[in-house]
Design a protein around this nucleic acid. Sequence first.
DNA 1: TAAACACCTAGCCAAATGGCTAGGTGGGCG
DNA 2: CGCCCACCTAGCCATTTGGCTAGGTGTTTA
Lengths: 232, 232
Amino acid sequence: MVRFMDKDSRSDVPLGRRSPMATTRVMVADRNVITRVGIRSILERNSGMAVVAEATTYEAVIDGVDEHGPDVLIIDLDLGDDTTRGLKLCEEIADRYPGTKILVLANTLSEMIVVEALRRGANGYMCKDEVKADELGKGVKAVQDGDTVLGRGVGSLVARGLGSTRGVHEHLTDRELDVIRAVAKGLSNKQIAHEIYVSESTVKFHLQNASKKLNAHRRAEIVHRASAAGLL
Amino acid sequence: MVRFMDKDSRSDVPLGRRSPMATTRVMVADRNVITRVGIRSILERNSGMAVVAEATTYEAVIDGVDEHGPDVLIIDLDLGDDTTRGLKLCEEIADRYPGTKILVLANTLSEMIVVEALRRGANGYMCKDEVKADELGKGVKAVQDGDTVLGRGVGSLVARGLGSTRGVHEHLTDRELDVIRAVAKGLSNKQIAHEIYVSESTVKFHLQNASKKLNAHRRAEIVHRASAAGLL
DNA sequence: TAAACACCTAGCCAAATGGCTAGGTGGGCG
DNA sequence: CGCCCACCTAGCCATTTGGCTAGGTGTTTA
């Protein structure tokens, strides 16, 4: 079952279905102290859950999950300078620790990232700026129950995306990202070619492919979209 | 006095200097519930301060300050779709309510925004992702005391910036921002000209000026910088 | 093994861009 | 009153770009 949390769909979330004594054990991964404290407060006070571990780096997430085996991992994919690594982390956790459900709590809302995260094993995706206090606890409970949760705004975004393009799961390759990052620095194709030791043609090739994947037609737009997706 | 919070300079913050009974009254403006709860927890539990009001929109900030007259306003400049409005808000608060000190707590760290905020009356600038739990309370106390506080990373950034370019306070005009936002959408100069009802020459003119101010040489770089500064 | 994929290269051409000079207007401020 | 500033326009020209077609390699995977 997939739960959308747009509008007033909150009423359909069945509360008290689970054994009331089984405290949900949560782990929080976010580089931001304020956010960690906030999540802890909300979860422990209002939902009777226990935050058993925290992490601020990609490495610490693995260690924490391994050591504490939480029921749910709330994670911000951006734990360093590379969101892509957060996605890989999702995959690894989902793979090695199937008992731990993953709820992504992101700063930015990008269709591409959402789809990628879900594809790689995340059980839910919510946006920090959109989520209401009570929704957080409900979201955690839902993913623990095995549901897929899409927070406010996320659901409609994905639905819209799925309708428009067939694949959508088209993610940028490493090389394409290299080129995009260079473009963001204001380099010309020639300069980029020189920087990454390939011909100018190759740079253009990667850029063309990236354009199609991001549905952009100008390098400025590519940079904008990549930036909005937290990719650079 | 300006306090930098890089490295281990925390030891030089004089604690207990103020009357121990005068509880600091704080107002928090941030669209993100988690952040609001987090700040409240940190401040009330560890520093004995009181969060007397919260706000999630630009309008509500003014109302809250007017009604509660907090000692310190902790604000995220990005309360909507336009960070520029947050800057104007700073100016207005500093102007009309000099009794309320302003501590900006930003998501992103951009030299331009920092300088602009301070120029318009903010008393401190900290970055959410960099700040440590204890620094938040100390920062609030410091701005209340009339000091200017620059959080970890912010101080060095500004110092570096001040040394490099003479002016730096060069901020983008409204029109330049219009054009940059259009560029980010992937429009050509011709399309932009049509969209904002000016000639193509004018679009190029604004872009050239923006290039100089942002020290960029290609539109992709302009978009990147503006994006990093939270301007689009 | 064949397909799929990331990656690399070449050339073509119209269109867009960057970098400049050289003008114009109206509003605000010392 | 000048002066600065945001804003608007024009033209020039070398360079860059977008979009295309048409190849090539090596690795992974069904």
